[in-house]
Simulated scan of single mutants.
Amino acid sequence: MTARHPGDNNSLKTYAAVGFGGALGAGLRYVIAIGALQTLGPLFPWGTLAVNMIGSGLIAWLAAHALMHPQGHVSRWHRFWFAGFCGGFTTFSLFSLEALLLWQRGQASLAVLYVLMSVSGWIIAAQVGHKLAR
């Protein structure tokens, strides 16, 4: 067995950082969803809309910050925030970052295709899952 680098993807500390970040993100998502439901009612999914927007903004800010301050490797804190917290808070955040990166690389048509395929695919998958459950 070889010694692991402190920033190694497979270290126990990295898994713990991602897990802890995910738990915090999911917990906060739940608090926001319940608060929005109790405050604004069930007519529109305000809580989900809010966490998706907050998560999308947060992951883009984190990515831009990481690019401006490269450390030569992805730190455990990056994994805590990206895969852990943002992943637990909302998976929509990574989708929005990926679409933004395609757009910024001059691949606007691919970014639009990705968004259209994703949203329509999610709705179709939800319909299929619902029908299979019945």
Rank of each mutant, 00 (worst) to 15 (best):
R76M: 08
P70L: 05
A60V: 14
I54L: 15
P70N: 00
F82K: 00
V74C: 08
H65W: 12
L67M: 11
M53W: 12
H69G: 07
L67V: 06
S56T: 13
L62F: 04
G72S: 11
V51W: 01
H69W: 06
I54D: 05
F44D: 00
L43E: 14
T48F: 10
G72R: 06
F82P: 00
R79G: 09
R76Y: 02
W81S: 11
H65E: 06
W77P: 01
L49T: 11
I54P: 13
G87A: 03
W81Y: 02
W77M: 13
G55C: 12
V74W: 15
F80S: 03
W77H: 06
F85L: 08
L58E: 08
R76E: 12
W61S: 09
W46K: 01
H65R: 14
H65V: 00
W77E: 04
A83C: 05
A63Q: 11
M68N: 14
A50P: 04
G57W: 08
N52T: 12
H73E: 14
H73D: 12
A64Q: 08
I54V: 15
H65G: 00
V51F: 01
H65Q: 05
F80A: 06
G47P: 07
I54Y: 07
G57Q: 12
S75N: 02
A66V: 04
H73L: 14
A83M: 11
F85V: 02
I59F: 06
S56W: 10
V74T: 12
L58D: 11
F85I: 01
Q71I: 10
N52Y: 10
S56A: 15
G72T: 04
G47L: 03
H65K: 14
H69I: 08
A83E: 02
F85G: 05
W46D: 01
I59D: 12
M53N: 03
A66M: 03
I59A: 10
P45V: 01
A83F: 09
R76K: 04
G84I: 02
M68C: 04
M53Y: 13
C86T: 11
L49C: 01
L43I: 08
A60F: 11
A64S: 01
W46C: 04
G72K: 02
L62A: 14
